[in-house]
């Protein structure tokens, strides 16, 4: 029972730089995935509004697939299945980024869609009547108004991607959790190593959440 476990917090303290390096990988991979997810998500969202049944159907299906498959399943599918099927041989990092970009795009697409829908369609018609091109209408009229509404939900997508990113250790990318597992393997300190991961991770998520709130405030009162 409790009390028999020999705490060795020194193991964690000694390997602090290693763990933080791993946390850094989690963070930047999620950010890269997030940027790609936003771009792809915007394409999906605009595709759904395109008015061509084929394109909007494809966009809707891809969105649904991206949201419906567990990230872990998709990671193994991309890394071991798809890469062999295509004969491409993705590196582990590439596989992770692909999965984050695609799953994130599914959520981002829905957010963009509701953001775009929230702008009254009369504005679209009015701008078109004034002679603006479709592209200009989106760029100068619709997107600036939607942007304020989608900041917070998009922030949640980034946090979600950061959570999924922790799975990358499964395909041997040395992220924080993977490194902690290595430390545990060498020193047998599972509680200390994984608690450290937990604490760092919670700190990262809280920091991100505070940042999102700050950005949102800034956009409300420019």
């Amino acid at each position: 029972m409790a009390g028999n476990y020999d705490f060795q917090w020194s193991v964690v303290l000694d390997h602090w730089p290693v763990l933080l390096a791993g946390a850094w990988i989690d963070l930047w991979v999620s950010i890269v995935g997030f940027v790609l997810a936003c771009s792809l998500g915007l394409v999906f969202a605009l595709g759904r509004r395109s008015g061509f049944a084929l394109i909007s159907g494809a966009a809707a299906t891809l969105t649904e697939i991206a949201r419906g498959i567990p990230p872990y399943v998709m990671l193994l599918w991309v890394h071991f299945g798809l890469s062999r099927f295509l004969g491409l041989g993705f590196t582990p990092l590439q596989s992770v980024v692909i999965v984050l970009a695609f799953t994130g795009a599914g959520y981002a697409a829905e957010i963009f869609r509701s953001g775009l829908d929230s702008v009254d369609s009369g504005q679209f018609e009015a701008s078109r009547a004034l002679g603006m091109s479709r592209f200009c209408v989106y760029k100068d009229v619709i997107l600036p108004q939607s942007l304020r509404l989608i900041v917070a939900p998009l922030g949640n997508v980034l946090v979600g991607l950061l959570k999924s990113a922790t799975l990358m250790g499964v395909i041997a990318v040395p992220d924080m959790l993977h490194l902690a597992q290595g430390i545990n393997m060498n020193y047998f300190a599972p509680f200390e190593a994984f608690t450290a991961v937990l604490v760092v991770f919670v700190a990262m998520v809280f920091t991100l959440s505070l940042l999102i709130v700050a950005i949102e405030r800034m956009m409300e009162h420019p």
Binding site: M1, A2, N4, Y5, Y72, V159, L162, K163, S164, T166, L167, L177, Q181, N184, P190, F191, E192, A193, F194, T195, V197, L198, F201, V202, V205, F206, S209
Partner: peptide, 25 residues
């Protein structure tokens, strides 16, 4: 609610299964 919504299920399940079980026996 704030704490548990901030964690990824993977970190969490590893922490419980490999970490917490060791400490509590």
């Amino acid at each position: 609610t704030q704490f548990f919504r901030a964690i990824s299920i993977y970190i969490y399940i590893i922490w419980i299964y490999f970490g917490l079980t060791m400490v509590t026996g």
